[in-house]
Amino acid sequence: MKELAELTEKELLGRLAEPGNREAVLFFTPLCGTCKVAERMLQVVEASGKAIPLHKLNINYARELRQRWQIASVPCLVVVEAGEVQAREYAMHGVDFLFDLLKEA
């Protein structure tokens, strides 16, 4: 399974400016074991081919979005549509939960 594409904060901010864009971002830190488990579950969802675009972003390099979206801890999965936060999940309840959350509309 391929890894989630890692974006910089600047790249993500550019993507968010696109109208009608719906995607999900996993905020993580490299040494976080729970983050690795969350990413693995998201890889399974992404492999289904029916999920919205998924990315990851190292929270240590995302000062602006961390403050704007009030990210309290990692892992944190944020679903964004047209630049607005639609969902913020800290507990990854399982692949089926994530699949339902991230399926294409």
Rank of each mutant, 00 (worst) to 15 (best):
E81C: 07
N58L: 14
N21K: 14
E18F: 09
A17K: 15
I71M: 02
N58W: 09
G49E: 06
V79G: 01
Q86P: 00
T8Q: 04
V78I: 07
D96R: 15
L26A: 08
I59Q: 00
L77C: 07
M41Q: 12
E23Y: 06
A105I: 06
Q86N: 06
A72D: 04
E46P: 01
V25A: 08
A105P: 07
A87H: 14
V78A: 07
R40I: 07
A38S: 15
C32A: 04
E3H: 12
R40Y: 06
S73N: 05
V78Y: 04
F28A: 10
T8I: 08
A91R: 13
R22Y: 09
L26I: 08
P30R: 11
D96H: 11
A38C: 09
E104I: 10
D100Q: 15
F28G: 00
L7I: 07
D100T: 10
G83L: 05
L12G: 03
N60K: 11
V79N: 02
T8N: 04
E64A: 15
E23Q: 11
Q43L: 08
E104C: 06
V74K: 01
E81H: 13
V85C: 04
I71P: 01
C35Y: 00
N21M: 13
V85Y: 04
L57D: 02
M92E: 00
A24Q: 04
Q43D: 10
L98D: 02
G20R: 02
E9V: 02
A38R: 03
R40S: 12
P19E: 11
L4C: 06
T8Y: 05
T29A: 09
V25E: 02
P19H: 08
R68K: 11
D96V: 14
Q43Y: 09
D96T: 12
E18D: 07
Q67G: 11
E89M: 12
Q43S: 14
A24T: 14
L54R: 01
P19T: 14
R66W: 07
G20V: 14
E18L: 15
R88K: 15
P53F: 10
L26T: 03
L65F: 15
S48H: 08
R40M: 09
E23I: 09
N60G: 13
F97H: 14
A17R: 15
L7A: 11
K103W: 10
V78F: 05
L77D: 04
N21V: 14
A47G: 13
L4P: 00
T8V: 09
P19D: 11
F27L: 05
H55T: 06
A91P: 01
